[in-house]
Design a protein around this nucleic acid. Structure first.
Lengths: 348, 348
DNA sequence: CTGTTAGCGCATTCAG
DNA sequence: CTGAATGCGCTAACAG
């Protein structure tokens, strides 16, 4: 690096004071250590020399690196989860921390995971965020993460050693179905995913509970399930819409399946939203905003989870032990409804 | 951090040798400094104690932090550009380096940009990657980046001080149009973006050059342009397809516009690919893979650009000055065609 | 109000 | 083949 580093020492001699004084002044130590006069001299000298502290040395000395590690599993790969990184990064910056990212593949085994954590630890990170996209949301903390300030994203620790955040699938589904009912619908189909993951069950629970609260009997024939791509949504929606007693609205497991439902409706000459209202899930802008009509859907609070995780991690790092209590139970984050144009009152 | 750090000193006393010896052995200093016997003792002790070097201290001493910074402008936000991060991260890991990420907004001004770079520099990063998504691809290196090993992604430095990579838009367009011509098409429409960005011009150049090479006259009426969302693509494609002499194939500026073209075709009862072939650009899986039929498109080499950038940065950091020469001219990366189901021979 | 000093954990001369 | 000593840049007692 050609521009040779200017250190505290250079500032000191330039200002004609000792390094101690410089250190105190630049770190804004509470007690008015130096006179206004010297403060100015030092600050001016620092600015003139283009001084910036060497955070490595600082960290070595203070035992705080000011860095936090984000171990993300496959997350940098799935587009709509990038917002976790974004939220974490912005929250970290707000706390004066830097984010160090390691992305591992979904099939990472325990050992490679431990290696990744070790790498972060060698860098002396002050805490670690572990974001997963897994089938089972319950995980076990890797052994070398035990005792280290850590927060899980999209997962919960089996042993309750670290707090975690997850999207509140159920309330998200509730928001979606409620919107449909408020528009006047009573025959609402649910195009679910057939896999055994928390989202599947949570969203179904939300769907059922809202129906029940509105006195609408649960009709099993209105619930179908398939894989979660557009084609699967299409295949399973087609027969559902090709019935004399077809639903007037559809709640789809995700935006991709909703995309398939759009196609099924088009083929059957059913217009959206006049003859069929649709709500999706995930708020994948690329799809939701570009479908016609634009899809009303439920957003996953990835950004917010990233922020929450960092804020919580910072409190734990600062020794607020009460936050450890959060480890007992998962924290759920709201999934807000994003209203676009795919809902209308049912046709008479 | 509860698990108290074990240092080189602990290993030394556990193995009954000096810290010097431990340092040499663990760093695999070339010359066989120690006897096989002591090597084993030291290594065993290190493993037993779960020793890991303190990279902060190491960096302070060696003047190399082993970290590189990635300053990304709005990049963590645009889904299909996340692959830059992924590529950079994996390449960095392969070099034993860690990636520190800072995401700034698109409207970042020069000052905030300098601040971000300063933050990275304070962390003593060994080099910086600057990824932008800009209208003008020519940028000026922020002053505090001059002299620091740096590589640009998706941009080129006006002053030629740092090398940069960009996607080869023209060759991507050529691949797309060539595929169409090889399928037998001669009336090929181009649904372009109306903005004045490199992609607009590069793709048009590619389109025109391939036509010319195949002796197909350029027909201006087959080229339309609009904003780049699905709705815009739809609006502009509809009249194009509603002509008696409509094109038998369409090359779209991006997958979103192609999505709009699909809708236009559907409304006109033109089936894809039998009566109309379509190629997109960007390879946004969410759209391309979920359209029906799945969209053949051109992929942006984001991952590869991330890898190239890190590899190049590493060489520069190691003082391979010949790599600085790369700064003179931008490096272009191929945009490969991703074949799906939207191309067929034209109907007779 | 300000300066001296002793490490933080490690790599590296330079002597054995 | 191995060890003692020095300092990377900075903070924090502890003196003045």
């Amino acid at each position: 690096m050609i521009p040779k580093r200017v250190g505290i020492k250079d500032v000191a001699s330039a200002a004609g004071v000792s390094v101690t004084t410089v250190s105190h002044i630049l770190n804004a130590t509470p007690n008015t250590r130096a006179s206004e006069e010297t403060r100015r001299r030092v600050k001016d000298a620092a600015r003139a020399l283009g001084y910036g502290p060497n955070r490595l040395a600082q960290g070595l000395r203070t035992q705080r690196s000011g860095m936090i590690g984000l171990l993300s599993e496959e997350i940098a790969t799935t587009p709509h989860a990038v917002r976790i990184i974004l939220g974490a990064q912005e929250a970290a910056r707000a706390h004066g921390l830097s984010l160090m990212i390691i992305n591992s593949t979904h099939d990472a085994n325990d050992e490679s995971r431990r290696d990744d954590i070790a790498a972060l630890l060698e860098r002396q990170v002050d805490g670690i965020l572990w974001a997963t996209i897994m089938y089972h949301r319950e995980v076990s903390l890797p052994s070398n993460l035990v005792g280290v300030p850590a927060v899980l994203i999209d997962a919960r620790d089996r042993a309750g050693l670290a707090p975690g955040v997850e999207p509140d699938e159920e309330s998200g589904a509730r928001a979606a179905v409620t919107a449909l009912i408020q528009a006047g619908h009573r025959r609402i189909g649910f195009v679910n995913y057939h896999g055994d993951i928390p989202a599947t069950h949570g969203r179904l629970r939300g769907y059922r509970s809202v129906l029940a609260e509105h006195g609408i009997p649960f009709d099993e024939s209105l619930v179908v399930a398939a894989d979660y791509e557009a084609l699967d949504g299409y295949a399973v929606t087609l027969p559902l819409l090709d019935r004399p007693d077809r639903p007037t609205a559809l709640f789809c497991f995700n935006d991709r399946m909703a995309m398939g439902a759009y196609r099924a409706a088009a083929e059957l000459h059913i217009t959206i939203p006049e003859e069929l209202s649709i709500v999706g899930f995930d708020n994948q802008e690329l799809i939701a905003a570009n479908l016609f009509p634009a899809l009303t859907t439920v957003a996953l609070p990835h950004y917010e989870m990233g922020v929450w995780a960092v804020d919580t991690l910072v409190r734990i790092m600062n020794g607020h032990e009460e936050d450890r209590l959060l480890s007992d139970h998962p924290t759920f984050m709201e999934c807000p409804l994003v209203i676009r144009q795919s809902i209308a009152a049912p046709a008479l």
